[in-house]
Amino acid sequence: MAKRRAVISKKECVACGCCIKVCPRAAITVPFGVCAEVDYGLCIGCGKCAKECPASVITLEVNDEAK
């Protein structure tokens, strides 16, 4: 399991899909076009989505479950 994981601010996400395009593991989806969601079983914490997000609503946090 990854030591870091992407966390998306659901209140601020505009569902643009930029994060989906850069995720190497296809861990991000936008169900119903409302807000992006991360599948933590697939997320490797690489940070590409956070760098690409034009609204800067994706952060990387320490994954406490990875210990």
Rank of each mutant, 00 (worst) to 15 (best):
K10I: 07
V30Y: 08
C35I: 06
I20N: 10
I8G: 00
A36P: 00
D39H: 06
A55R: 15
K21Y: 14
V14H: 10
R5P: 05
A15N: 09
I58K: 00
T29R: 11
D64P: 14
K3R: 15
E65G: 09
V30D: 08
V34T: 11
K48A: 15
A55T: 14
P24Y: 05
R4E: 01
A27I: 11
D39Q: 11
I8H: 00
K48Q: 11
A2I: 15
G33S: 12
C53D: 03
K10Q: 11
G41A: 10
L60R: 09
N63Q: 10
A2N: 12
P54E: 01
E61W: 00
K3Q: 07
N63E: 08
N63M: 13
P54M: 13
N63C: 15
I28P: 01
E12V: 10
I58P: 02
A6H: 04
K21F: 11
E12D: 05
C18Q: 07
M1N: 13
C19Y: 02
V14A: 06
L60E: 01
S56F: 13
L42A: 08
V22D: 01
I58V: 04
E61M: 12
A55D: 07
C49S: 06
V14C: 06
V7C: 06
A27L: 05
E37S: 05
G33T: 13
A36W: 03
K3A: 12
M1F: 15
V7Q: 04
E61L: 03
K3L: 10
T59P: 04
F32M: 15
K67A: 14
N63R: 15
I28C: 00
C23G: 06
G47R: 09
C53F: 02
K10L: 10
E61P: 00
A50F: 08
K21S: 08
C16E: 00
K67Y: 11
P31N: 07
G17Y: 15
A50H: 06
L60F: 02
G33W: 11
C23W: 02
K10M: 09
I8D: 00
M1R: 14
L60H: 05
K67D: 04
K48P: 01
K51C: 03
D39T: 11
V57G: 01
E52N: 12
K11L: 06
V57D: 00
C23D: 01
G47F: 08
A27R: 06
R25L: 11
P54Q: 07
S9V: 03
A27N: 03
Y40N: 09
L42P: 05
C23F: 07
G33H: 13
R25G: 11
V14Q: 04
P24R: 15
F32L: 15
C23I: 11
V22K: 05
C23K: 02
V30A: 08
N63H: 10
Y40H: 12
V7S: 06
V30L: 12
G41M: 09
V62P: 01
T29V: 10
C49P: 00
R4Q: 02
A66R: 04
G41Q: 05
E61T: 02
E12N: 13
K21P: 00
V38H: 00
C19S: 13
C46E: 03
R4C: 03
C46A: 03
C49T: 05
V34A: 09
M1A: 15
L42K: 13
E37P: 05
L60W: 01
I44E: 01
N63F: 10
V14K: 12
A26E: 08
V34G: 10
F32P: 06
A50D: 07
K48M: 13
V62I: 09
G41V: 08
C43H: 06
L60Y: 03
